[in-house]
Design a protein around this nucleic acid. Structure first.
Length: 333
RNA sequence: GGGAGAGUUCCCGAGCGGCCAAAGGGGGCAGACUGUAAAUCUGUUGUCUUCGACUUCGAUGGUUCGAAUCCAUCCUCUCCCA
């Protein structure tokens, strides 16, 4: 993907949980006159700080951060809402002559933003959603899958019959908008990638090291008071629909119910975090392969033969900015 | 010292003469992902180059056409009575 001077530059700092995205993003933002835009589905919520590993005021070091604490945990959020908000943030940062650094671990959010996915106008209709959910229970998976096959066989072919979430969403979309998921997938990309993207992927060359870091961070969170935060989410679990699914809270529910010890729950939490990190690795790998980005740099946090991770990242950003700077003949100048 | 029981593939755990390289779960590895995404879903997991072959169910030896499954001895562990 070529760099274009008609598009805004953005730097994306992504990678699995506990790799050190936050620190790198802040350092880079300071070095390149930037601001940080979070790409995290859970850090949007106020009051969920420890479990989501949200940057602290101190860690921000004066760098403005966007899309953090924008919602009450009782509110719902979505990719569509995210990309819209992120676009706004990017525009406002760029218009100040500063550089936006997108930093986070939610693969769907990042890839949707970077690919410029256009979502449908229609908002989630909980009535329709509930309707199909009850139908699923009543009629069974096979029947629902068959139903989808009839309206959108192309998309159905791509799904496994057990993929409840996606089968229901596809049915819901059709019911609500009259268009199929296949159509949505096609039209959503018509705008093309909207930004010049410099993608920095943080990773660990040694998987075991990544897992060790994750385990250690869970212990730190616990010391920082994760349990109280988890209790808060537990008490409000019916209200905090999304947060109740976040890793770091639900694992302690059995403890609050007296069914498991803290030790057991902590082990479960570490396990869930490690599994999550693996899924993130897969996501970012596939993003790397489908490169809609101007440049992509993989940065191993545990093998920095060519300088510190920050130095490597900074060098990459520097090169990217030079490449994308408009020549004097550029009509945009 | 006496009695009862257990040792299965990375882990837990089913199997109790052939259909067993061995259910199921966990973990590992790999993948998917378009308004719940920190969610959800899929594949794979003894060795060897495939059909297939080979090694495995604490150890050794036996019974049998055939054993993870039956018998003997041994080793280890748990529990109960002393």
């Amino acid at each position: 993907m070529a760099v274009s001077c008609e598009k805004e530059n953005i730097i994306v700092v992504c990678g699995p949980t506990a790799t050190g995205k936050t620190a790198i993003a802040v350092q880079l933002a300071k070095a390149f006159n930037g601001e940080v835009v979070s790409a995290d589905s859970m850090q949007v919520y106020k009051g969920l700080d420890i479990g989501t590993a949200k940057v602290t005021q101190m860690e921000m070091r004066g760098v403005p951060h966007h899309l953090l604490n924008i919602l009450s945990p009782a509110e719902e959020f979505s990719v569509a809402a995210y990309t819209a908000a992120a676009k706004n943030a990017i525009t406002s940062i760029s218009s100040k002559g500063r550089l936006p650094f997108i930093c986070g671990g939610t693969g769907l959010y990042i890839s949707s933003l970077v690919n410029g996915i256009t979502f449908t106008q229609a908002k989630t209709d909980n009535e329709i959603r509930e309707h199909y959910k009850t139908q699923w229970v009543r009629c069974g998976a096979v029947a629902m899958y068959e139903k989808l096959k009839k309206i959108d066989s192309e998309y159905a072919k791509k799904l496994h019959p057990n993929d409840k979430t996606r089968i229901l969403r596809a049915l819901e979309l059709y019911c609500q908008t009259g268009s199929t998921m296949t159509e949505q997938l096609r039209t959503s990309r018509q705008g093309g990638p909207p930004y010049n993207v410099c993608l920095l992927m943080l990773a660990f060359e040694d998987r075991q090291k990544m897992y060790n870091r994750i385990d250690a961070r869970v212990d730190v969170m616990l010391e920082a008071g994760l349990l109280e935060e988890a209790a808060y989410v537990y008490k409000n679990q019916d209200l905090f629909k999304t947060a109740a699914k976040a890793i770091g809270y639900k694992e302690f529910f059995p403890y609050f119910e007296g069914r498991q010890t803290i030790v057991e729950c902590t082990a479960k939490l570490k396990q869930a975090s490690r599994n999550y990190a693996k899924r993130q690795v897969t996501w970012f790998k596939s993003m790397q392969n489908t490169a809609v980005t101007a440049t992509t740099q993989l940065i191993y946090m545990d093998n920095t033969g060519y300088g510190t991770p920050f130095e490597i990242a900074a060098r990459e950003v520097d090169e990217f900015l030079q490449k994308s700077s408009c020549p004097t003949s550029c009509p945009m100048k």
